[in-house]
Each structure stands twice: as structure tokens, then as C-alpha cells.
Design a binder for these strands. Structure first.
Lengths: 110, 110
DNA sequence: CGGAATCCGACGGGATACTG
DNA sequence: CAGTATCCCGTCGGATTCCG
């Protein structure tokens, strides 16, 4: 079973995106539906096990949907739900902040 | 030594806030300077070891400053830097998103 | 192709006791 | 008061191999 839902909203958000890969997966899926292999390729260095684990967790949390096509060879597509997509502003903010941070830290430490 | 700085801005941001406590610490310090004991009390359930570890890491990352008063009994104050404080918008977004998420999920699963 | 299975190490974190 | 010092544990993630 999954973890408890914290009462604090910040913790809730963190619970969903605070691991190493989830945000990067979301980032990729913001461009649109993708297949397992596409995700694996575009997310540099993730192992299939970890990718699967993260995708399943995110599915369970309602951030994305998994669609299996009963074909040979198999085909599985992942798509963000509306809830998942609504994280976009936060991701955008993180891009901005991260960029700024790198700039400032460089000045500070150099 | 600390971790490598990722090139991707999102990863940079995540590196700094993706653990269980850092965001909550920032959240507390957004109200203003606080002492070790105050943080420990207001952050529910954190152990002194972990709190120390996180504070030191955040200090090293330039998110906050640590000020020691050479008194007996000791007094140590923690204050956000400008960089640390600039995370506020993201935290605010996380509050909003987390609140929405809880609302929507309740509808879905119930 | 999209995983599942296995093994394994590292790290974050928890509880508790102790100290300058 | 503000930490250290231990010890211990669980989870995440990495690498690799195998399967339907």
C-alpha cells in the first residue's frame, strides 16, 4: 500500500514529486503522451526497474494514466492526468529558481 | 562534500528541497529567524540529529545562515538568505497545489 | 517492447543517550 | 540549549538478466 496522506499540503506535494525522477518524468510527459521506451530514452540514466516503479506509483497517485495496447510487440503509453498536468506551474517555477540559484551561487563561491 | 550540481535547473531545485524536511524548515523560517529549539518544536517529529544535518546542508547550499551566540546557555539562530527566501513562491504554489490535490483525490477515490 | 526478478549498496532517517 | 555520538533500519536507486 502507499503512504499516508499528510495533512500539510506542502508535504502532500512533496510526497508526490520529491524523489529523484518523478519531476523529470512529468517534465517529459508535459510534452504529451509517451511510451515506456521513449521515457527511458529521454530520461538520462534511469533503469527500467526504477522507471516502472515510479510510473506505477504516479499512476496510483492519480498523476498519470497507463494505457496498454494488446499488441505484439507490446505498446504502453503514459499520459498525464489533469491533476498531473496542473503541476506545470510549479515545474516552471523550479526551472526559473534553479537557473537563478546556479547563477547566484557561482558568484558567491567564485 | 556535497553532491554535484546537476545541469538541469529542475534537478538543482529538487536537490535542495526534495528531502523530507528541508521544505518544512524553510516554511518555518519564512516567518523569520528562529532558534534550534524553536525549529525542533515546530517541526513535528524531527530528531535533533536529522535537524542538524539538514540545517548544515542548507547552510552549505546557501539557503540559510547560522549565527552562534557565545553565551551560556548556547543560542543559535537560523535565518534564510535571500536565495532561501526566494523559494517562497514555489512553496506557496505547493500549498495551493497540495490543497487542490487532496480535494480532487477525495472525490476520485470516494 | 515493456517490463519483472534479483541482488546489492548508499543514504536518509529514527530513537536514544550523552555533553560543552 | 544546541547539539554529538551510536546504532539500526527501510527505502530508493543502480546494474543486470530474463521473460511473454
Amino acid at each position: 500500500m502507499k503512504k499516508e496522506m499528510p495533512s500539510c499540503p506542502v508535504e502532500v506535494t512533496l510526497m508526490l514529486i520529491s524523489n529523484r525522477w518523478n519531476v523529470l518524468i512529468i517534465r517529459d510527459l508535459l510534452e504529451g503522451t509517451k511510451r515506456f521506451g521513449e521515457l527511458k530514452k529521454s530520461i538520462n540514466g534511469i533503469s527500467p526497474k526504477v522507471l516502472t516503479a515510479n510510473l506505477r506509483a504516479m499512476e496510483e497517485n492519480g498523476l498519470l494514466t497507463r494505457k496498454v495496447y494488446p499488441e505484439v510487440p507490446p505498446k504502453v503509453e503514459y499520459t498525464l492526468t489533469d491533476i498531473g498536468y496542473s503541476l506545470k506551474p510549479i515545474l516552471d517555477d523550479m526551472v526559473v529558481w534553479g537557473t537563478e540559484y546556479k547563477r547566484k551561487i557561482k558568484k558567491t563561491t567564485k
